[in-house]
Design a binder for these strands. Structure first.
Lengths: 238, 238, 238, 238
DNA sequence: CATGAATGAGGGTTCATTCAT
DNA sequence: CATGAATGAACCCTCATTCAT
């Protein structure tokens, strides 16, 4: 119990049920995993709609549709489920956006694709935007997205001379900062359809890409975002 | 009661006490105003150290050094004191940074000066940075700084052709987003002395200023920031 | 707060209100002390009727007739109020029994008087007996009664040769053990009027007093027990 | 189900399985009885270490090493398992102490042997002492020890003129009270090797045996206590 | 029967709010 | 107005109990 049983929200991996455990145990474990998933989905919706508050376990279980005590069969504290949820969100973003990003080879194109796609995602799924805005910088910086994927593209862009900036961490802030504010914006007012691309262009420029190149990269056709039906972003499914 | 009696934290202006009230009334009003100021300072410190939480009145009054019931003589709700405090912080920033900004006439220089100064302020006063980071986008967008001063410079920069961006609101996000992330960064790690200027440069570039010009503007000597001793940012004084 | 403000249950002592504190503070402190007394009385009744359980704060406040939150203005934990209550009970016993005991000079007479009086008290106030039985040895050994008064008489009895036993601690057990069982008995069945004296006689014999002497000491007329009307043992008075 | 299947902890007797049931049923019944024994042993350890609390079933099953739900296959309530356990403890004491007591014919010697042996047992097995102290008078008075065996010796002592006391119930309290306090004492401090005998002597004196006789009886050599390896008092064996 | 995940009643605890002084 | 003790709603958390397997 309390071990890390979750990988993303889609339950995509099959745990290869060991033949040695009896059927009862297997069934119990399956049920437990499904309940855990419910809880994380509930936490996602609770955070998105109420922000991070010290008193949320009640809300989480209500959103998840499970009994209050059940929470403690899976998590010890509020921070624990918050962290798990932020990780799950990060994994989910990658699951959705990565197929598009990996079609681009130029670091500038990859960053532009990532930035514009994620903003489009926020427009399509306000709950996602709310989660990030309410969670604050912590929600953005948790997970491998901000710690591995984006830094990788920054590194490639600087090495290849595509970006003229030299401070890697500053570069990360120049990407995440505008995206966070964009999320805030899409929640409070309607934005034009070119907004995600204009934002991506500006981000590239801040990294030292020339206006003309930035525009070219930012307005490429990156393809359509596909959201799996089992996604955490999809409306509640008990 | 509950009228807007606060303007900044310095108690610099005297509100023109009516001659008709007697001395006792005058003394009472003075005491009330001082208590109110204590409360806002307490709120500032409470927010900075504990984040925005739904349950903070106890903490605010403790930080302010007044009794719990006193809170309700000045504010009705938590949101009220939060809003007042955010406004006071905004006014305070202007009081400190504006003397430097108004020495610059070029919109790019003004933006660069504002951005770099405010980041320097966050470095010097982590409590200030914490307040903004914990308060989130709301803390940044409250007050006349984000609603009047910066938009004014953006407008001037676009009109004069200094900025090539055309979306005014996007421009605001491109300034505030990186600043917010910068605040987060200065709280978690040490930054180089040129960090505020590099950030300002990147911001100008995102607005469409060329690399060379952006660098020139961002690395001007804007003069030294002076923090009044009665500032809300200064260490607690009951 | 949480300082030791209680001395017995009768509020007998006057704290000599300092002239330096203002009236408001004085009134507040008075009210606080009265509430604290209510809580200890409530705790006494709660222990007596339900035994020591891990979940009693609710019961204590209900018995005390105060709000649940009020408990935490006076005590931090259940153990704290239990200990205070046991101390208060010990003080109360001394307040009631000591006037009779101090009329006896012979150690054997003093022990006999104490034992028989305390059993009579338990017969008259079953709530008191219940408190002790439910609290177990801890309830008996807390307070100065078991740690100072009785040991003093044991010492005197051994020194003077009245008792032939030499192990002081064993002697204490030989007194407290039968008394504890007697409390248990008076709660479950009717006892004869000579029961307290017969018990006292047997206790003296166990300490090494001869049958004849023991009987003489145990059946002396020790006078009538007087219970103050403000006693914690008296029925609930809000 | 819920019938009284337990007699002592040693599983010494076989309940005469009906010949008509097939082997599978027999195996099932065996397993059930073993589980029940595990539960009572678990209850014993749980009570000893945590005292009698209203919320202990979790602890009992954990100590027993069985699943939580299993409890309800054997007992309905907490009181039920507590009573069963107290009875089992009583039976166990008799099983251990009786072989020594029955070697004595004089009632005074029998009482002295029982008292000193049981205190020696408490010294050797603190878990046993804890169980009794935590269980309080109820733990002492449950079982046939306090209701049959000891009263039988009291009766014999009074009839034969060995004891001068005439109140049978008082006599029982004079035996059990000191024993209970002695259990409390051996848990909190080290006692001398003659302590059990001194206690027994004092008890005899309280019953009206003269000092000289009491000493003679209490310091007889009663032989060595033998604890069966399958005893509930022995260290946990799953 | 044994198992253990889920349940939810019930008691613990905090803290915004009131109010007598 | 300032004070701070009292209040009680609302949430946290545990743990006896159920039940599908």
């Amino acid at each position: 119990m309390f071990s890390d049983k979750t990988a993303g929200m889609g339950e995509a991996y099959s745990p290869g049920s060991p033949r040695s455990v009896d059927h009862r145990t297997q069934v119990g474990a399956d049920r437990s995993r499904r309940t855990r998933t419910k809880l994380i989905r509930g936490a996602f919706r609770a955070f998105a709609s109420h922000g991070v508050d010290a008193r949320m376990i009640d809300l989480v279980t209500r959103e998840a549709g499970v009994a209050r005590g059940t929470f403690y069969n899976h998590f010890r504290t509020f921070e624990e489920v918050f962290h798990e949820t932020a990780k799950a969100v990060s994994i989910e973003i990658i699951r959705i956006v990565d197929p598009l990003v990996r079609q681009q080879s130029d670091p500038a194109a990859r960053v532009a694709c990532g930035v514009s796609s994620v903003v489009k995602l926020a427009i399509a799924y306000p709950t996602f935007a709310q989660f990030v805005v309410r969670g604050g910088p912590s929600a953005v910086t948790a997970g491998s997205l901000a710690s591995e994927i984006v830094p990788g593209d920054i590194e490639a862009g600087i090495s290849s001379g595509r970006f003229s900036i030299s401070d890697r961490k500053l570069a990360l802030d120049l990407i995440l900062g505008p995206v966070l504010m964009a999320f805030h914006k899409v929640l409070t007012e309607k934005v034009s359809s070119s907004y995600p691309n204009l934002l991506a262009q500006a981000v590239l420029q801040s990294l030292g890409v020339s206006k003309a190149s930035a525009q070219k990269f930012a307005f490429r056709d990156f393809g359509k975002i596909e959201i799996p039906s089992d996604s955490i972003f999809a409306k509640a499914s008990s």
